[in-house]
Simulated scan of single mutants.
Amino acid sequence: MNSLPTLPLDAAFAGNRLLASLSAAERELLAEHMTVISLEPGERVLTAGGLVDRSLFPFDGLMVSMITELSGGRSVEVASIGKEGAVGGMVSSGVAPAFTNAVVQIGGRAASIPMAVLQSAKQASPHLQELFCRYGDALLAQVMQSVACNSFHPIEARAARWLLHAQDRVGGDRLALTQESLASLLGVQRTTVNAVARVLGEQGLIANRRGAIQVVDRDGLEAAACECYARVEGHFGAILGPDGRGRTTPSTD
């Protein structure tokens, strides 16, 4: 994890959908104590049972997976977070233990804000408090839908759904992710994902690149995905507004 100069702060406020909704006054509550950091794939930003002492607001293509681990080395992703949201401390008041691990899947940058600063800002701004509570609701919806999806939907549809979510969070067609990583996130064998990727590739929906997956046909991938993608995105829009910002236009107060 590398800290960067304060110059990218404007990029953070513009690149993260939650931060982009803040008024000038609300930005001032956070900016003085905000640091932009660069994160690489595989870095763990939260550890289950460890204290959450900061919140991260991804932008610049960063995607973080919330991963639940079971005995025997088994694990599965329960939620993914990118430029639409934040990692850690959205609903809790102050420092609290994390329930799952949060691991960087696709590298990029994030704005890091100490929990104490974020909590003070919530108390000073009713909009901030409401915004983060609404985002917490949207994130919980994603987790609940993932439970249903993992229980009932075929792996082909689940993989298509995950790739759509990843593309939304990264903001581009190229996903710097290997099939082995995707298999781990979906909780299946690599051979299973290899077969699914081959089918999606033969249908012209994706293309495998060295160390990456390229989304070729977005509409076709949506048709191949299960209903869970549309349900989660629809709820996100209903909770946080059509632009994902918690209100129809940024505040000017």
Rank of each mutant, 00 (worst) to 15 (best):
V143R: 14
V143W: 02
M63L: 14
L177W: 00
A31C: 08
A224S: 12
E43G: 00
F99R: 09
V188R: 14
L200Q: 07
T192Q: 12
A207T: 12
V143A: 02
L182C: 10
G171Y: 07
A223Y: 07
L240D: 00
I37L: 07
A157E: 13
T178D: 06
V91S: 02
P154E: 07
R54H: 12
G211H: 13
L46T: 04
A31P: 07
E32D: 14
V170F: 02
L118Y: 02
E43M: 06
V143L: 07
A157F: 04
L9R: 15
H127A: 06
R209G: 15
V199L: 09
Q119N: 13
V188A: 08
S251N: 08
G88T: 04
S21P: 00
D10W: 07
A223E: 11
L29M: 12
L39F: 03
E156S: 11
E222N: 12
G72A: 06
A157P: 00
S71C: 07
L29W: 03
I213C: 05
Q123V: 12
N208D: 09
R17I: 01
L240S: 00
G201F: 05
Q167V: 06
D53M: 08
S71R: 11
V193D: 02
A230K: 05
S93D: 15
L70Y: 13
V64R: 03
A111C: 05
L177V: 15
G108V: 01
V104I: 07
E77C: 11
T100S: 09
K122E: 10
L70H: 09
G61N: 04
I155W: 10
E77M: 09
Q142K: 13
R17H: 09
I206H: 00
V188M: 03
L46V: 05
G234M: 01
